[in-house]
Write a protein that binds this DNA or RNA. Structure first.
Lengths: 107, 107
DNA sequence: TCAGCTAGTAAGTAAAAACTTACGGTAAGT
DNA sequence: ACTTACCGTAAGTTTTTACTTACTAGCTGA
């Protein structure tokens, strides 16, 4: 099926990674800057950023010796669309099976 | 922050769990029924269903000796709303920082 | 009640993932 | 060129989590 949703959900599943994404939601930030916000080492932040980048949720840009990360609007929009499809699909399936829920005789 | 998003994303992060949710999207199903669809044991499916239930994505109903699981429309709708807030927030933040992307201010 | 299904829980194991320190490589300042 | 600052990667460790095999309990029909 669509492995994109998989990767996107995995990226936001970890608390630290979710918080990092939350911090980038406020403003673009460098790696070392982000590392000061959480009780993990800088390499750990780097690794989380790689996961987020692979999921298409963030992107990076070199600025001198620093590397600035920011939310990637295209990746975010895409994941949003895919999830919307999932939800509406799930809700449609629920409506289709609504009567079976109360009266389960027909399977 | 909102731990609900966290739990929701965690619930869909695992491939097997995501597939189980996908199967329930088609129609409500019993635990043993679901277990035949995937190369894992029935208790494993039970445990996945517990995670999905804690996330509010599915609900269950007793039917004789069996237990029927189905997508929970309320939980799905709620997670959908929360995610929508997250996305629009992230996209708004991007627009606000769009010019900083090319010419970032010093920190 | 007994036999048979069902499914959740417990306990332990195996696999995965998050984290650490150490290292190497690039960019900017002196 | 040397030094300093920033960051990614490698290697190894710790912690989580997904999974298995028992075991227990509830429901149904004979």
């Amino acid at each position: 099926m669509d492995a994109y949703l998989q990767v996107g959900c995995e990226a936001l599943a970890d608390p630290t990674r979710f918080a990092i994404f939350g911090a980038l939601r406020e403003r673009p930030q460098a790696v070392g800057e982000l590392a000061t916000l959480f009780p993990v080492s800088r390499p750990a932040v780097s690794q989380h950023l790689r996961v987020l980048k692979n999921a298409g949720l963030v992107r990076d840009r070199k600025a001198g010796t620093r590397r600035i990360y920011a939310v990637d609007p295209e990746g975010v929009a895409r994941l949003r669309r895919e999830l919307d499809l999932l939800w509406s699909d799930a809700l449609a399936a629920f409506k289709a099976a609504a009567e079976q829920w109360e009266e389960p005789h027909a399977v």
